[in-house]
Every structure is written in C-alpha cells, then in structure tokens.
C-alpha cells in the first residue's frame, strides 16, 4: 500500500490571522500543519498498518516555512516528506495548486505506483474544500471525497459520505483521491522517538522545473480570481453581558423583543 498525503501549512486558528497583498499571511511562528490534515495522515497510517506493508509520503506546497507541515506529518509517522517550493507558485488559485500537486503525485507514482492520495476535508484557512475534486480531475483518478469511512480491498476503495440529505456509499478503482472528514478517525499524537527522527529526516525539495510544470500555468498570473480587497471586520459594538441573579431570562427576552427578534 503506497499512499501520498497532501498537507498544508496554515495559520493557527488561535493566532491573529490576516491577509497580506491578497493572500493569507503565513509565518513560521503562527503556522502549523492544517489540523484537518491530521485525519488524512491518520487514515493513511492506519491503512498501511492494516496492510502490514507500505509507505506514506507527505507532500506540501508552499514557501520555506511550509516545510513545518511535512515535518509534522513525519512526527505522526509518515515515512517520506516532499516540499514543493517555487516563487512562481505564489498566488495560485485552486486549479493552479492542483496542477502542481498533480505533477508531484505523478513524479512519485512514476517511481512506483501509488494506490491513494489522501487529503483532509478542507484547509482551515480557506475552507473551500475544492482542492480534492480539482486534484482528482487533474489526475483523472477516482474521486472519493468527504469520506467519514474508508475501506480498501481488491484494488478498490469504498467510502461512506455523509451529506445533509443522505448517507452515500461510493466505490471506485484505485488509484483514487480520497478526502477524509474529521469524523473518519481520531488522529494519534506524535511520540518522542518520531519527533526526534522527524527533526533529522530528509525532506525532498522540488521546484516547478523538477516537476516539469510551466511557471506560466500556475501562480497569480494564471489564477482565475484575484482578491481585490481584504479588511478586518470591526468588532461587534454595544455588547452586553449580565449575570443571572434571577432575572436573566427576562432580560434576555426583553433584549430579543426590543430587537424585533422574538
């Protein structure tokens, strides 16, 4: 079982997240591996452990700081790490990013075939959930997205996906791109041995030239959308906080009535 997991370097949810020149500000101090990618790493590790053989590749795309995301994946137990970094990638939209990731996936796949690419359900900065679909389309591999359950047998992957109107079971031949939700599993914690090993582990660094991707096909220039303005929203005003000493419910009712909300 050979699995590649895509991981993203995103700002910590608790940090002061912001925009710089139309893109999300990412710093080494306030950033880490997207939390939902832990479920993707966990799903990959569980499949390899169950198969009794195999390897997990962690791949990230981003500037120099993004290497922290693959180091985190190594701490969790991934066997290999790849960091795709190239100034020309900056400002890519989801379709450009999918092109870069697809090229990296093919490079690994050409060395020895992969069975799966596993991603998280969303990155907690953008939250669009579009990348897994774009990647499956770009690779022309099976698309099994938003899996809350995943099984692999006889060259086929089967997922359960939970949509508001129905629970679907969908299956498809390998290789497949699978995105897993935060309900799919409970991610493990890194252990001391792996943390120490991850520090010294080698991370392959690939440029667009290494991937044979034309710089003009990605980056801000090729993006189909442009952020034209980003501004912090003003905090809520006239906020009230009371302590219930027997009249709290009445005060709440009066507030709602006055606001025309009740």
């Amino acid at each position: 079982m050979r699995i590649l997991v895509t991981v993203k370097h995103t700002p910590d949810l608790q940090s002061n997240r912001s925009f710089t020149e139309g893109t999300v500000t990412r710093t080494a101090e306030d950033g880490s591996m997207n939390e939902l990618d832990e479920n993707a790493v966990e799903a990959a590790l569980q499949l390899v452990e169950a198969a009794g053989e195999g390897e997990v590749y962690a791949l990230t795309v981003g500037g120099p700081d993004a290497v922290a995301a693959v180091r985190k994946a190594l701490q969790l137990g991934a066997h290999h790490a790849i960091h795709v970094s190239d100034a020309a990638i900056a400002g890519s939209d989801v379709f450009g990013t999918a092109k870069v990731i697809a090229a990296a996936v093919r490079k690994v796949h050409d060395e020895a075939p992969l069975d799966l690419v596993i991603t998280g359900m969303a990155a907690l900065d953008g939250l669009t959930s579009m990348l897994p679909t774009a990647l499956a389309a770009e690779l022309d591999w099976s698309q099994l997205t938003l899996a809350s359950g995943l099984t692999v047998a006889d060259g086929e992957a089967t997922i359960v996906r939970h949509l508001p109107d129905a629970r679907e079971t969908v299956s498809a031949p390998l290789p497949a791109v699978v995105s897993v939700t935060d309900e799919a599993n409970k991610p493990r914690y890194p252990n001391f041995k792996l943390i120490m090993a991850a520090r010294k582990a080698e991370v392959a660094t690939w440029s667009l030239a290494d991937l044979g991707v034309d710089a003009s096909a990605v980056g801000a220039g090729a993006a189909r959308t442009t952020v034209v303005d980003a501004s912090e929203r003003p905090p809520r005003e006239n906020r009230v906080k009371i302590t219930d000493t027997g009249e709290g419910g009445n005060a709440l009712a009066d507030f709602l009535i006055e606001k025309g909300l009740a």
Binding site: L13, S18, D125, D229, S231
Partner: peptide, 13 residues
C-alpha cells in the same frame, strides 16, 4: 473569512 473576522472581496477574472 477566518471565522468571520475578515471581509474579502474577490474579482473573477
């Protein structure tokens, strides 16, 4: 975005 703490305007080119 960012748990509704920022407003973003995007142009579709």
């Amino acid at each position: 975005v960012f748990a509704a703490t920022w407003n973003v305007r995007t142009r579709i080119d």
